[in-house]
Amino acid sequence: MNPERKKAAAIVLLLFPCLYFVADLFISRFTLSIPSSDSQCLEAKMFLVDKSDKNIKRGDLVAFKFEKEDQYFEKGMSFIKIAAGLGDDRIEFTPETIKVNNSKLTIKGMNHVINALELNSANYNQKIRVKQNEIFVVGETIYSYDSRYWGSINKDSIIGKAYAIF
């Protein structure tokens, strides 16, 4: 083997463990998420989830395990939604609007899902206060099935903060 090939082989042997170490660190902290449903609740098509960051603020995207008993989704499924309300926030919503601490959010209404699931729209005129250890999550499309239907999520079910990639 000529000296240049030996040098190149030595560089590759040195770089490979470094690249492996960096990739392993990335994978241990982050995961890519692609929504599995055709009826997405968020506009983005792919997300990066930081599993080490669970410090969620209002407006952040949050990845979580669905821990509710629900006839439409299995317990333990993963979701990504917008953190609309945090502990002690006041949420007021109707099928057409949602307010957090008296500020109106620009979130699509609930009528599409209410009609598709044949639900009683009168059940979705509510005023609630989010508990300290919970987060009220919503989607941004007409297809979103979220906390307006099944209540807030517990902070213990958070996987991490999510970021829309595209």
Rank of each mutant, 00 (worst) to 15 (best):
Leu86Pro: 07
Asp156Asn: 12
Ile159Asp: 02
Val113Trp: 05
Leu61Phe: 15
Leu105Trp: 08
Tyr163Val: 06
Ile128Cys: 03
Ala162Leu: 05
Thr31Ile: 10
Tyr149Arg: 03
Ala63Lys: 06
Glu67Cys: 07
Asp53Ala: 13
Arg29Met: 11
Pro35Arg: 05
Val100Trp: 06
Ser121His: 11
Glu67Gly: 10
Val22His: 03
Glu67Arg: 10
Lys51Thr: 14
Val113Tyr: 04
Ser103Leu: 11
Ser28Pro: 11
Ser28Thr: 10
Glu92Ile: 00
Phe21Ser: 09
Phe93Glu: 09
Phe93Thr: 10
Lys127His: 03
Leu48Tyr: 03
Ser121Lys: 12
Phe93His: 10
Ser37Arg: 10
Gly139Ala: 01
Lys81Ile: 12
Ile158Pro: 12
Trp150His: 02
Ala164Asp: 15
Asp156Thr: 08
Lys45Ile: 13
Val138Pro: 01
Tyr143Phe: 14
Val22Gln: 09
Lys65Cys: 10
Glu92Asp: 07
Leu48Lys: 00
Asn133Phe: 02
Asn115Leu: 03
Ser152Phe: 00
Gly59Ser: 12
Asn115Arg: 04
Glu140Tyr: 00
Leu19Ala: 09
Ile114Asn: 01
Ile91Trp: 09
Ala8Val: 04
Arg148Val: 13
Ser121Leu: 01
Asn101Cys: 02
Asn102Gly: 03
Ile142Val: 08
Tyr124Ser: 08
Gln71Ser: 10
Ser52Leu: 13
Asp70Trp: 05
Met77Ala: 10
Ala122Met: 04
Gly85His: 05
Glu118Gly: 02
Ile98Tyr: 07
Ile165Tyr: 06
Ala9Ser: 08
Ser39Glu: 15
Ile82Arg: 11
Asp38His: 12
Lys108Arg: 13
Tyr143Val: 00
Val49Thr: 04
Ser147Pro: 01
Ala63Arg: 09
Val138Asn: 02
Pro95Gly: 03
Glu67Tyr: 08
Gly76Arg: 13
Lys65Ile: 08
Glu4Ala: 03
Gly109Phe: 04
Ser78Asp: 15
Ser36Ala: 07
Val137Pro: 01
Ile11Asp: 08
Lys7Cys: 07
Asp146Arg: 00
Lys51Ala: 11
His112Asp: 15
Tyr149Cys: 03
Lys104Glu: 15
Val130Phe: 00
Asp24Pro: 00
Arg129Ile: 15
Phe136Asp: 09
Val137Thr: 11
Glu69Pro: 04
Ser157Tyr: 07
Ala9Asp: 08
